[in-house]
């Protein structure tokens, strides 16, 4: 897959995971990996970008005598996901169009 496209999609995968429940680095990687491969070094900039765009916020909670950073989706983040899904309805139309031309593939 085109790396730029993948980067953009990963952002929404992270948002989708957080939309279900608050989560932390390790768990996000695990959940997103079910659908698309993601590494620790890829996740970090995504989280950072989403946080600076205020699509998610962070808080720390103690876990086994150490602090774990949790990420929580904001309303802006939820809207961002909705917008993405709306936009991609058009993309899916185009996808069907492209696919229709080569139905035998």
């Amino acid at each position: 897959m085109d790396s730029q496209l993948k980067k953009g999609l990963l952002e929404f995968c992270v948002i989708a995971v957080l939309d279900k429940s608050d989560s932390y680095g390790y768990q996000i990687i695990k959940d997103v990996s079910e659908c698309i491969t993601i590494s620790e070094s890829t996740l970090y900039p995504i989280l950072k970008r989403l946080e600076s765009s205020q699509y998610l916020e962070t808080y720390s909670r103690e876990h086994n005598n150490r602090l774990r950073k949790y990420y929580r989706i904001t309303d802006a983040g939820r809207n961002y996901r909705k917008e993405f899904l709306e936009d991609w309805k058009d993309v899916m139309k185009i996808y069907d169009f492209i696919k229709g031309e080569n139905e035998n593939d």
Binding site: G25, Y26, Q27, I29, E40, Y44, R66, L67, K69
Partner: peptide
């Protein structure tokens, strides 16, 4: 961030 993930 990395410390947390390694510990997890």
């Amino acid at each position: 961030y990395y410390e947390e993930i390694i510990e997890d």
